[in-house]
Design a protein around this nucleic acid. Sequence first.
DNA 1: CATCGTTTTTAAATTATTTTATTTACGAAG
DNA 2: CTTCGTAAATAAAATAATTTAAAAACGATG
Lengths: 411, 411
Amino acid sequence: MTTQESIFEIFSEENLAGVAYKNKSLKRSIIDHLDQAGNTTITDLTVALNISVPKTTSLINELVTDGIVKEYGKDDSKGGRRASMYGLVAESGFFIGVDIKNFHVNLGLLNFKKELVNSEMHVPFTLANTPESFKDLIQVILHFINNAPVDKKKIFAACLNLSGRINSEKGYSYSYFHFNEEPLSQIVENAIGIKTFVENDSRAMAYGEFYNGTVHDEKNVLFLNLDYGIGLGIMIDGKIYRGKSGFSGEFGHIPIFSNELICHCGKKGCLETEASGQALIRLFKERIEQGHTSSLLKDKKMPPNLRVADIIQATLNEDVLCIELIAELGEKIGRGISVLINLFNPELVIIGGILADTGDYIRLPIRSALNKYSLSLVNNDTQLRMSKLHEEAGVIGGCLIARHNLLSFNK
Amino acid sequence: MTTQESIFEIFSEENLAGVAYKNKSLKRSIIDHLDQAGNTTITDLTVALNISVPKTTSLINELVTDGIVKEYGKDDSKGGRRASMYGLVAESGFFIGVDIKNFHVNLGLLNFKKELVNSEMHVPFTLANTPESFKDLIQVILHFINNAPVDKKKIFAACLNLSGRINSEKGYSYSYFHFNEEPLSQIVENAIGIKTFVENDSRAMAYGEFYNGTVHDEKNVLFLNLDYGIGLGIMIDGKIYRGKSGFSGEFGHIPIFSNELICHCGKKGCLETEASGQALIRLFKERIEQGHTSSLLKDKKMPPNLRVADIIQATLNEDVLCIELIAELGEKIGRGISVLINLFNPELVIIGGILADTGDYIRLPIRSALNKYSLSLVNNDTQLRMSKLHEEAGVIGGCLIARHNLLSFNK
DNA sequence: CATCGTTTTTAAATTATTTTATTTACGAAG
DNA sequence: CTTCGTAAATAAAATAATTTAAAAACGATG
């Protein structure tokens, strides 16, 4: 029996009854506990799961022969005989995260102990809603899998992060690659030969930041993905909140401005029309046309194909116009966040996405807008923190989601 | 052993281990199942809880001798011996809900089977943040308890609904009756001699509507309490979402207007300044001053102490000005709701609170504003429904919260 | 460096639960 | 109205878990 088979046995949805069912759930609980609490002793598990020592011992032994758990030496002395520490086996399974951006793809490989063992960042790729773009993507993924330093059979699952509207339960992506009735997850799964899930990019980043990033004890956390659009990942009680069909967090399209700009979603007054990376480029052009200047100009003219990354870089190089624009953006985003704080009373709001790389240039205007627009009692309750994982948030989150979905913890 | 003692034994937080612990949790699970699924058979429980028939039988028998469960005749024939139906005993315990409004109090008494056995609506009372008002309130509650048609000892818990910021976990009310450091829940508990919880009024209404009202299978539901202020109760995955400190749902104070009106919260541009019952009265006055007329005028002058209820009544009597104002209000509320829909992608939004009594006069403008302001894909996903429980939502919700907290189901 | 207190682990005894078999109850068909 | 098929409830047997007791492992103390 290979490791893979035994893992699938434990995590299969097969309907067992009676003792077999109970043992299976107990084993899952043990893995869940080892997953969350790290390596522990049998005594620890005994109190955590409310089962006796002999029972725990026999279950652990089975998991050890299954290859999912192994002994990690002895515990520190607590006065008597030292207890054996048990923990998950890092090499017993791997998971892939594919984070698809507008102009590149990031990929990562995670082991069973939630450690990133391999990653490829900034693989060139242009996201377009065409079959060609999709084919390119599959090639990028296959290349990553073939170059991965592990047995392909031990890669249990993958997760694709895409912006736009995603129904991760059913595997549909509505904004990209929705060419026929078959769910995107299924199409990719067939193409790469690995169980595949899809998830909204901001939610995946939120998940990564939540479980492997800047979040410690907080349970209700909002993650902002400030990119060309404005995404929002909502974590409630430690779980991703997706809404009815997976369309939650359309923060960029809340109507809080009284302008006449038509958003690409077709509505007027969306937050995204004033406070996104796209808006940033538009505002930059407008200022240049009004006669302002910037270090980004080539021969005193607008550079062609100006990207958000350029403006971020210029800001960090202390370009005055860019600093001003980022501050304006921050003010507007802060006003948006104050809506979120009033509604969610979160413990923590994380500023992520490429625009978060501007650091204090964007953080301080956001902070002051929050004081201006949200109820102080509620606002004081909420921490504002910058992303810790930066551009790795997506891949790590994707890997963790693949892992979580396959193992179906906490369900 | 009295019934009360035995109930507290099962639901006590006392730390048992081993078999005793397991039996206790199984008993709780049985009660939980009977609570949600109604009367069922032993075979049913066997598959639902994954335990054997003899084990289920012995647990049920213990619960029967405890007085919490009893037999409710035989099941319909399915071909063989007819199964006994078991269910909760309605009279084994009672719960009180106290819904405190600006100008009156509603009280209700719920039995163990979630049936409202007694209620007193519109008990005269004026809510003010003074010790006198609080004393009056206690008198109202004591009067209700003493007149209740059940043994006072069998009333296990009560819940107080108040508007404003409430930390229900710790029992604090910040907007009303926060006279000293002791939690309000504790003060009331000492005064009435019954375990007491406090909850935000809109959340309690949402809870009532969710479990005994218009909600059927939906799990992610938003409830709008349109009163003098605008409250929001958020139900996620069947649970009340309270946020970090219980300040979630401050919907009335999201800054989505660019007006110069100072809200009573101290900020500008709050939804409440334009779309609440308070705003309605202000707008009515303004129109009258501009020369408009209405059936509500006395000698062609503003009536003193005009209440929202008066405008609602006039609307239902087809007063043209009031109908217009309600439509304007609906439009603005709809714009606010579109923010919620974009963020939450809920299955259902319930329009409740006194202004919901205007029915289609407010529903239709809300509906059309939603089409105008929210993403169609997301919007089409969400149902809009009017409250079913109307002014009883609060009391029923309060009773159910008291019951839930005491029994601590799903925890 | 042997002994003692402490804690984990293993083993044996006890208790509890499930599984299987039997009995009881019910409706329908002959 | 008896018989037969089916399903629930009960009883007995078998299995599995917990509890208690004993052994092993370890550090500290004298």
